[in-house]
């Protein structure tokens, strides 16, 4: 039996993430306690209200367990606004800021204070068609109060980068080394392409 992919199941769209992973044949496990992380091959952090996720994960045992996961370079996928906990800190971050403070600043991205809005309709919840090199040419991505990471602020070693996608001059997908970030919420899409991709990647890792 291949080691399980864990889905953080404290708050957010974890039901949907679990069922999508099961549908593509993955051995999955909901994770509600830090000790469970040690036996996992990979971890998915589903879309959630970021302040609530921050409050639950800021406890010392979660901080160290996820830090160890990151250091060991096991595959990690953060979805939607959950990625804010993995982004670079903003200069004005505090607990009451529009964006909660980062707990594991590994993403080479700095968030804006506002969520990502559709450039023409101004909607916070919207669908947009994306092309993601090497994965899909046409994907209907669902953005639900998604984090906004300006593409202009992206700086990183290009050798680490696997792929990157933009929408409205914002980075909405970033894959590099062992980390996958999607600003959109694949849990709510009927297209399983990213779940298949992550499962394959986790097997290779």
């Amino acid at each position: 039996m291949v080691a399980a992919i864990g889905v953080l199941a404290l708050v957010g769209a974890y039901h949907a993430a679990l069922s999508r992973l099961r549908a593509v044949g993955a051995n999955v496990q909901p994770v509600r306690y830090p000790a469970a992380l040690s036996s996992l091959s990979a971890l998915v952090v589903p879309s959630a209200v970021p302040h609530a996720l921050y409050r639950l994960l800021a406890a010392r045992d979660w901080r160290s367990a996820i830090h160890a996961f990151v250091v060991e370079r096991r595959p990690l996928w953060m979805m939607g606004a959950a990625a804010l906990l993995f982004a670079q800190k903003r200069p004005s971050d505090d607990r009451s800021a529009p964006v909660p403070p980062a707990l594991w600043p590994i993403l080479p991205l700095v968030p804006e204070a506002a969520v990502l809005h559709h450039p023409t309709t101004e909607a916070r919840h919207f669908t947009a068609t994306l092309s993601v090199p090497g994965i899909t040419e046409r994907y209907a991505a669902i953005f639900l109060s998604a984090p906004s990471f300006p593409a202009a602020g992206y700086r990183d070693d290009p050798r680490r980068l696997v792929r990157l996608s933009k929408f409205a001059e914002r980075i909405v997908l970033l894959e590099w080394e062992h980390v996958l970030f999607t600003a959109f919420s694949p849990e709510f899409s009927d297209d399983p392409v990213f779940f298949r991709h992550f499962v394959e990647r986790s097997k290779r890792a």
């Binding site: 708050v11 769209a13 879309s47 209200v49 609530a52 919207f126």
Partner: peptide
């Protein structure tokens, strides 16, 4: 009907 409104509620799952 907003095509995404039924999905927004799931982001609150597990919460208060």
């Amino acid at each position: 009907e907003h095509p995404l409104k039924d999905k927004i509620a799931w982001l609150k799952n597990g919460g208060v």
